[in-house]
Structures are given as structure tokens and as C-alpha cells.
Design a binder for these strands. Structure first.
Length: 113
DNA sequence: GGCTTAAGACGTCAGTGCAA
DNA sequence: TTGCACTGACGTCTTAAGCC
């Protein structure tokens, strides 16, 4: 049993405004190996042939979606890794700036004794 | 060794955006 | 309008780690 899905928001860009790497859409025209193109609709006759065609279309769609999901997950992992390394860089940068600020405070503040 | 549990990977469904 | 790619959400399975 599946629950109704939430709307897709694509809010990953909220922080930076950049297109997340895992959302960049590359054209994927190549079919997976072993996929046979459909017969032309005009060549279908019996209800059984129609049913077979529907089944074949569904299997093709599932196979494509399966591959798309794998690729989507791979891109998302890459994107998260990229964000994590950026966080690490920014934390170092922030620490240095805080240290610099403290140094300047020491230099500029009047002596109290 | 058998158990519980958390984490990760996977397949599927459903909703969205876009090009033709 | 339609077909398709993309992706969030969900359920299931597998595996590793911790506990008894």
C-alpha cells in the first residue's frame, strides 16, 4: 500500500541558487541492451496482441525508470558529497576569519592598565 | 548462534517540468 | 496536449554491528 506522494519541490537550490549537479538533465536516448522497439500500432490485431503490447510497454517503462532511479541516486550522492566538502572548506575559512578578527580586536583595543 | 536495529540499495509509483 | 525524463516517497531486502 502506497501513501499519496508529496509534490516535488526541487528546493535543493535554495541555499545557493545553483543547479544541483544531480538535477542536471542529460539527454538519454540510448535504450538499454536487450530492448526491442515496439511493433507499429497498425500491425496489432487481436486483443491478445494488444495485451502483449501493453505488457511489453510496461516492462520497458519499468526498466527505463529503474535505470533512471539508479542514475538519480548516484547523482544525488555526488551532490551531497560535494556539499559536504564545501561545508568543510567554509568551516576552515570561518575559523580563520574569527581568529583574524580576534587578532585585530587585540591590536585595536585600548590598554586598560 | 539468534535477535534486534540502523543504514544503504533497490524497484516501483506518482507527480512535475519540459520539449515537440 | 502528449510523451518522456527526473525525482520524492514508500515498502522491501540485505548487511553489518551490537547485545544477550
Amino acid at each position: 500500500m502506497q501513501k499519496p506522494n508529496m509534490a516535488v519541490t526541487g528546493d535543493e537550490t535554495a541555499a545557493t541558487g545553483d543547479m544541483p549537479t544531480y538535477q542536471i538533465r542529460a539527454p538519454t536516448t540510448a535504450l538499454p541492451q536487450g530492448v526491442v522497439m515496439a511493433a507499429s500500432p497498425g500491425s496489432l490485431h487481436s486483443p491478445q496482441q494488444l495485451a502483449e503490447e501493453a505488457t511489453r510497454k510496461r516492462e520497458l517503462r519499468l526498466m527505463k525508470n529503474r535505470e533512471a532511479a539508479k542514475e538519480c541516486r548516484r547523482r544525488k550522492k555526488e551532490y551531497v558529497k560535494c556539499l559536504e566538502s564545501r561545508v568543510a572548506v567554509l568551516e576552515v575559512q570561518n575559523k580563520k576569519l574569527i581568529e583574524e578578527l580576534e587578532t585585530l580586536k587585540d591590536i585595536c583595543s585600548p590598554k586598560t592598565d
